[in-house]
Design a binder for these strands. Structure first.
Lengths: 348, 348
DNA sequence: GTTTGGCACTCTCGGAGTGCGAGTGCCAAT
DNA sequence: ATTGGCACTCGCACTCCGAGAGTGCCAAAC
């Protein structure tokens, strides 16, 4: 029994220390906890508990005779076991709803959402665009830009516009291009881009002998476009990077710079995020848990959102390990669910 | 005659001080200059000249008994009168040419250019997209997204794609939309968007009594789209923001943050740039010359580039006042001219 | 035997004092 | 007009406390 009680006590104290540290940003000492602690425990007792917690690796001291600071492991325990789920405040929910309602095109909405996340958490907010290979074809169009250059415009069901310029070997008139576009739409509307691509590649093999020039051109063109499309980086919206500078913890300019560079090289960012969020639910990655050492002092709260049945994009918050996890989690969870709902059954 | 000689001497010394300071970043003293100065002048003499220069407002001392540092006014004089024009190194020219050649769509080129500027100068590079009201219509297309939502896609001669979602009062079939698009293209291809808008507004007034429903719809739709288009912010590509952090001069976190926020709020940035570059040639704005106090310690080297006869976008470098002006100017000048040439007579 | 008060100890942080080096301003000599 | 010399001024890095906060441990108390 003493074991359990101690455990409980330890949990209480750990929670209180972390809460306190998240709020104040300064190492918290035994006296501070003793004051808050409802059951009358003296500072000395707290000290003993804290020593235990330190031994278990949940806390550490910046130096002897400073208060305690949570370790990454401490945060991990806090997030997993000590955090009481928090409902997103009504005012926040309303702001999210408003942003979603107001905007028109998907990229705009996503951009605004990253901005909103940044504002509400005072951290860096990000949104990765849905994987376009899962987009559902609504319309496709080819426009001749010159003798051998063609612009392809594709619109998916969510109203996102994809476009790509490609060179072709043979010159095609705008009229032919229109026909090709019409054919592709009639044939493939409602399918996902990756399905279409498969189907086209299949057709290409089979139809080699066919005489219908238009058809074979349509297939070639469609394939070429979709192929190119696959190579395009996923887009990311990152907002609130300056907030990182606000963090008093970061005086290390050099580390700062590396972080900012990572944000600017968005391709790298996407990789990190993809790696982390394997289309399961919401995830929290804390400091040293990151594979990329650049993020060693940053925590990530991210959640995928879905379009249709397929996993799609990722959105979340990036901030110092000393972060208001409860709030961030509530927000990310709420938005990702809302977005999934809307994208799966679009308003159109 | 003594007057002129002194003037010349002053110029020499000022130039050398600024050169030196740009390179080293540290206040430069009389001895340093005395060593470099070809005509044998002693440190003491240099000191006298320096004192004069300080009195004239070209130099200042961080504190008594430190070396001299150029004032903004000093930089101004340097840029206007002391700088020997520098040709852009061949290697740089080649890198620029390669970027321009390789890319396909205009936005991609511009993005790459901002990146390139940032790399070559180790500063922040930016490119503002051309004013779309001056774009020349090549193709326009309407796509129905739902009962009362229409997506308009417009392609201009440079291959830039503009799009906009709008709500309409009446439902239009895709067939009707196609016809409307065709009509607008046939009627207005080759005109600039602002011309078209004028023309449409004119037509709207005159044709009120007309019975041709399709025509009046086309006019209404076109107007609505172009109207909305005007409100869209100009796009800016900003690259290399982290380079600002590299600057040893900036320890002031708070100022840092404000600068970064300005970069993130791109609308604000466009305003600043527009204000500065009134479609004349290359311009340099130094530190306190900025109207916006946020940029008080930054210098801007910017030049507009043209598409057709009309002024179009702006591109340039933003960095600390202690900047390699000669290099930055050479680079910005070269790129803006190259870009103008290409956009005015596109490869298509 | 858990808890607690007390006490010695450790460590950081800020302010005061100090020596050094760099650089200036001025003056008298050339 | 130019220059060498010299006194003077600062900033910077260093050191040296003293105060304050917090710990660890021990012996007493509940």
């Amino acid at each position: 029994m003493s074991e359990i009680e101690l455990e409980n006590r330890g949990r209480e104290v750990l929670r209180e220390i972390i809460r306190n540290f998240i709020e104040s940003g300064e190492p918290v000492g035994s006296r501070t906890i003793a004051k808050v602690y409802s059951e009358g425990l003296s500072a000395a007792s707290i000290r003993n508990i804290m020593a235990d917690l330190e031994e278990m690796g949940y806390l550490s001291q910046p130096h002897t005779s400073a208060g305690r600071v949570p370790t990454d492991r401490g945060y991990r325990y806090y997030v997993d076991s000590l955090l009481t789920a928090m409902a997103l405040p009504r005012s926040d929910r309303e702001r999210v709803a408003e942003v979603v309602r107001r905007q028109t095109s998907l990229p705009e909405v996503l951009h605004e959402i990253s901005r909103l996340i940044s504002h509400l958490t005072h951290q860096v907010g990000f949104v990765v665009c849905p994987d376009h290979t899962q987009a559902v074809l609504k319309h496709i169009e080819f426009i001749s830009l010159g003798p051998s250059r063609i612009l392809a415009i594709l619109v998916d069901r969510a109203g996102v516009i994809h476009n790509r310029v490609a060179d072709t070997s043979e010159a095609l008139s705008q009229d032919e291009l229109d026909k090709i576009g019409k054919y592709l739409v009639s044939e493939y509307q409602g399918k996902t881009l990756s399905e279409i691509r498969e189907s086209l590649l299949q057709a290409m093999k089979e139809e080699k002998a066919r005489f219908d020039k238009l058809l074979s051109r349509a297939i070639a063109l469609g394939t070429q476009f979709l192929q190119a499309q696959e190579e395009v980086d996923k887009e990311v919206f990152v907002q609130g990077t300056p907030n990182i500078l606000q963090q008093p913890d970061f005086s290390n300019m050099d580390e700062m710079r590396r972080i900012f560079e990572t944000f600017e090289a968005k391709g790298k960012l996407v990789k990190i995020l993809d790696e982390v969020v394997s289309s399961e639910g919401l995830r929290v990655v804390i400091g040293s848990e990151h594979t990329d050492p650049t993020l060693a002092h940053l925590s990530l709260v991210a959640s995928p959102y879905k379009v249709g049945e397929q996993g799609a994009g990722v959105l979340g918050v990036l901030g110092p390990t000393r972060m208001e996890y409860a709030r961030a989690i509530a927000l990310v969870d709420y938005i990702s669910k809302l977005l999934s709902r809307i994208l799966t059954a679009p308003p159109s």
